[in-house]
Design a binder for these strands. Structure first.
Lengths: 136, 136
DNA sequence: CAGCATCCGGTTCGATACTG
DNA sequence: CAGTATCGAACCGGATGCTG
C-alpha cells in the first residue's frame, strides 16, 4: 500500500518539495513507481492488459504469486487509480479486475519494457554467462 | 545479483522451459526484469541516460541510495550487459559508469514509464487520497 | 470464491567501519 | 575515490486459519 518514503535516511527539506524529479528522495513519483515496478505489479499490469480477470484467474496465470501478495499488489494499484475492482453481489462472490484509463497508459509502457526484454533475452543471458565466467 | 528464481514454490517443469512468457515463473526474463525494475535499478538507468557518471556522482544524484545498494545494483546491471564499468588506473581511483547499447534501449523504455508517471503524478495522488479517505 | 489476520523464517537493506 | 565486510533492523513473502 506504500506509505510515503521507506528510506530511513530522512529526506531533506529540499527533497521533500522537489516534485518532478524522481532522483530526489522526496519525490512522490517514487512511491507510484514502486507500486508499478514492484515484483508482482509489473506482471499484474501486464496480465490485465489482456483483459478483465478474476482474482483466481490472475492467481493462476501469474505463476508463483501468493494470495497475499496478489491481494496487496491489487490494492496498491487500485489505490493509485490504475486498477478497477468490480464486485458482483452474488454467492459465491465474483470480483473482476480491470485496468482504468490511466492504468492502460502505464501498462502499455510496462509492456514495452517487458516485450523488449523478452525479445532480447538471449543476448542478455549470454552476457550474464560471460560475466559470471569471468568473475566467478 | 539475482540468482535465478527466488520464489520458494518450485517452478513446474512446464514453467522451467516456458521461455517467452513472463507470467510463467520459470521464464528467465523475470530475473532481468527484476534487475531493471528494482528500486534502485530504475533510477540508475534513468540517471545514466543523462550521461556517464562516477560512482560518487550517482550516489549524490540518486538521493537515498546507500553505497551498498548502489554497488549491488550497478553490478547486477553490468552483469546483464546494460552498464559499462570503466576503471581508470590512477590514484585516487576513478571509475566511470555508462550505458551500453542495449542498456540505452532498456533505459529509454524505463524513461518513458517514469516520465509518464511524473507528468501524471497529480491525478494519481488525488486518486490515492480519495481512496484512503474512503477506506480509512 | 475472494479475501483478511496472524505468525514467522529468510532475505534485504542501511549504517558503520575498514581496505586498496 | 571506490568500493568490500559486517551486523542489526526492517521488510518481504509464504503458510495457515478464518470470514462473508
Amino acid at each position: 500500500m506504500n506509505n510515503s518514503v521507506k528510506s530511513t535516511s530522512e529526506p531533506t527539506l529540499t527533497d521533500k518539495f522537489q516534485r518532478g524529479n524522481v532522483l530526489a528522495s522526496g519525490c512522490p513519483s517514487r512511491g507510484v513507481l514502486q507500486d508499478v515496478t514492484s515484483r508482482w505489479g509489473v506482471l499484474v499490469l501486464f496480465a490485465l492488459l489482456r483483459g478483465t480477470h478474476r482474482f483466481s484467474e490472475l492467481r493462476k496465470s501469474i505463476t508463483g504469486v501468493s494470495e497475499k501478495m496478489l491481494s496487496q499488489t491489487l490494492h496498491a494499484l487500485e489505490a493509485d487509480g490504475f486498477v478497477l475492482r468490480t464486485a458482483h453481489p452474488v454467492i459465491p462472490p465474483h470480483v473482476d479486475y480491470s485496468l482504468t484509463e490511466s492504468g492502460r497508459e502505464v501498462a502499455k509502457r510496462v509492456e514495452e519494457l517487458v516485450n523488449w526484454i523478452e525479445v532480447n533475452i538471449n543476448p542478455i543471458l549470454n552476457a550474464r554467462d560471460k560475466y559470471t565466467q569471468r568473475y566467478r
